[in-house]
Simulated scan of single mutants.
Amino acid sequence: MALPRSDYLSNVWKDGIFDNKVVFCTGGGGTICSAQVRALVHLGANACIVGRNVEKTEAMARSIATARKGAKVIGIGGLDVRKIETLEKAVERTPTSKLETPILTNLPENSAGAAGNFLSPISNLSPNAFKTVIDIDTIGSYNTLKATIPHLVASAKKHPNAATNPDTGGRIIFISASFHFTGMPLQTHAAVAKAGVDALSASVALEYGPRGVTSNILTPGPIAGTEGMERLGNKAAEASGAAMRSNPLQRYGSVKEIADGTVYLFSDAGNYVNGEVLVIDGGGWRSPGSFEAGSRKYPDYLLDDSFARRIFFLGMLRFFGLEYDDMTMKLYIFMRGARDISLLREVQGK
């Protein structure tokens, strides 16, 4: 059953604006990416989405195909963006004889437990964990670029980027974040990885702009109902409304708003936009203050190692396959001492 258009696309966009276009999207099974691709398919595009989880990716492809009668959407699972040969094979399966605009490159939300979607102080961040995020996010973005850029250049040549041409080819969007704009406690791995993606996009814009290819960054803020917010969100602050009040617009964003930004950059309206960073976060990255861990304020949770202990506790629960409950809390208190009771209650916002 098709989702209502209002779930993933505003009414301002005209049907058919992406007729005969193709989108290639890594991480297409994720909440945000699937909404982006669904919007493009609704407006006429065909698509190939790839991801690590076979069942999830294929199921999402079938769901996205319901956005428009006759749409062709292929879902390719079991793909590792760290291995360029898997991406090259996926591109060959794209549902068209010629890959045309646009291409959507994104951090795979369904691989490695969602690269970067975890919190850790540098003191607890192993070199291997740091490298894994870089490999999936930054290197994965570069590999996707390398696998698709020959097709994008050919598309841009056939459909030149001119102010009078409503049918241009060769568009790239990289999905990024705003952590590295100011620095972010507990998100060093993601901040460094995304800074690399931003630099990659800027270089692509300069090197391939003369060939008619545009490259831009789309940076979402906190988006309600996503895997990222499920992992990173502060449940207690969300329940009280404090999390939303930290944003100038007093709310989280929606996947529809990210999809709308995607349509803009890929549409005729975005023909002259190149090398830019479009932040869709309600002005959140400009808000004062740093990340807060439960009731603890910055830098207290770093200086007293409380967040490091929290990570250790949650890791032990996952290792033994346990759920957070009063019994596990009592056991941990017995092992660590009553001083950590407030920390344990924060683990699930109790």
Rank of each mutant, 00 (worst) to 15 (best):
A39V: 00
A259R: 02
A237P: 02
K158F: 06
N234R: 02
A293N: 07
E92M: 10
E100C: 10
E88K: 14
I122T: 13
T66R: 06
N247M: 01
G225W: 06
S215M: 11
F18K: 00
V277P: 00
K131T: 13
G170V: 02
L218S: 11
T164D: 15
Y332D: 09
E109M: 10
A195N: 04
G212D: 02
S63C: 04
V279Y: 03
H151A: 07
L119Q: 04
G27R: 00
V255Q: 01
P127M: 07
A35L: 02
I341S: 04
N53F: 01
A293R: 05
G44P: 07
L43P: 00
A65T: 00
K157C: 11
E346Y: 03
R171C: 11
K157P: 01
G196D: 01
A293I: 07
L107E: 04
M60S: 02
P220D: 07
W13F: 11
G170N: 04
E276I: 14
G337K: 10
F319N: 12
D15K: 09
V277I: 12
G29L: 06
G140E: 03
F266S: 13
K89F: 06
G221T: 05
A147D: 08
G212Q: 06
D268M: 02
G337W: 10
T226Y: 07
Y272H: 13
Y272C: 12
P108V: 14
